[in-house]
């Protein structure tokens, strides 16, 4: 759905994008992760047709993004990292206005507005002034607005910041539902656990370059493989320590109280054999596991400034 090759963008002397390359297949819920200033918003704005790249290639739905972005805009819904609402309009008027911007007539705009309000559970707010709405509700309204043209690609720049947990859950469920219906979604957020839960694939951007991209389970599994094993034990005799030290797959043993942790590059079968040997030497082991992979740890590993 989105294919980006060697994208570059500078603001004066500051290089926001330094040859970004990424691909989002159709129907993916793609999480866009990166530290502040990494180039996420710039990338999203370029895809949404709100900014011109200095160089590089952007293809959205098999259409090359060039000077004329009208056709692309028609199939893209964009939620920026700010509200951008008209406080002096009613909820229904706000949505009908945006529907009319996509060429819908009054009747069609009203029908689409009613559909969206129903979808987001906001029907009872249709006659409320936008000004009087809570932050979370305004954010939901922004999402509804971006869906008004039934886009093929939905771009959300930190849509859940400031939302209460209930709304976040609703948003998550809605996005998953839309994704299941075939919509491609590009979402950026700093809540990495939430992204890991909802997204089908993730891209990590740092200093204007994509440093890692793939589907969430694979990335987590890959990251998990580099995580250390943890041993929780009641007693750990000297012989057991010797076995641990002599295993060629064990690196850098660290102990803290009754916990021993060590990176391990062997297979799971080899790890099971190691456990059996330790128990045989009299080690009283309560638990033996590899630390779980987390998007947060992966994010920190990939984006840490050396």
């Amino acid at each position: 759905m989105v294919r980006i090759r060697n994208l570059r963008k500078s603001y004066g002397s500051y290089q926001a994008l330094r040859g970004l390359t990424m691909e989002i297949p159709r129907g993916e819920l793609f999480g866009f992760v990166g530290p502040n200033g990494a180039g996420k918003t710039t990338t999203m704005k370029i895809i949404a047709g709100l900014m011109r790249a200095d160089s590089g290639e952007v293809v959205v739905a098999d259409r090359m993004l060039s000077g004329k972005t009208g056709q692309i805009r028609e199939m893209v819904g964009y939620v920026p990292d700010f509200f951008g609402v008209y406080d002096d309009l009613k909820v229904q008027e706000y949505l009908e206005f945006f529907a009319s911007l996509y060429g819908m007539d009054g009747k069609e705009a009203r029908r689409r507005t009613a559909e969206l309000l129903e979808m987001l559970g906001m029907t009872q707010l249709r006659d409320e002034m936008v000004d009087g709405m809570s932050r979370g509700m305004k954010q939901k309204l922004c999402v509804a607005r971006a869906l008004v043209n039934t886009p093929e690609l939905l771009i959300l720049d930190e849509p859940a910041s400031g939302m209460e947990p209930r709304y976040r859950r609703q948003l998550k469920e809605l996005l998953q539902e839309l994704c299941a219906e075939g919509m491609t979604i590009l979402i950026s957020s700093h809540n990495l656990n939430e992204l890991a839960e909802m997204c089908t694939s993730i891209g990590v951007i740092s200093k204007g370059r994509m440093v890692m991209q793939g589907d969430v389970p694979t990335l987590l599994r890959r990251q998990r493989e580099t995580n250390p094993y943890v041993l929780q034990c009641l007693s750990f005799p000297e012989e057991a320590i010797q076995i641990l030290k002599s295993d060629p797959h064990v690196k850098n043993i660290a102990s803290s109280g009754t916990n021993i942790s060590f990176p391990y590059d062997g297979t799971e079968e080899e790890a099971a054999e190691l456990l059996t040997a330790l128990v045989a030497k009299g080690a009283q082991i309560v638990s033996f596991y590899r630390e779980e992979g987390s998007l947060e740890k992966m994010f920190l590993d990939m984006t840490t400034v050396p």
């Binding site: 704005k45 949404a48 047709g49 709100l50 009208g70 805009r73 028609e74 893209v76 964009y78 920026p80 700010f82 509200f83 951008g84 609402v85 008209y86 945006f98 911007l101 996509y102 060429g103 607005r145 043209n149």
Partner: peptide
């Protein structure tokens, strides 16, 4: 100033 310009420009309207 109201941050609505980008949103307007992201729609089909020219």
């Amino acid at each position: 100033e109201k941050q609505t310009l980008d949103i307007l420009l992201s729609t089909k309207i020219t």
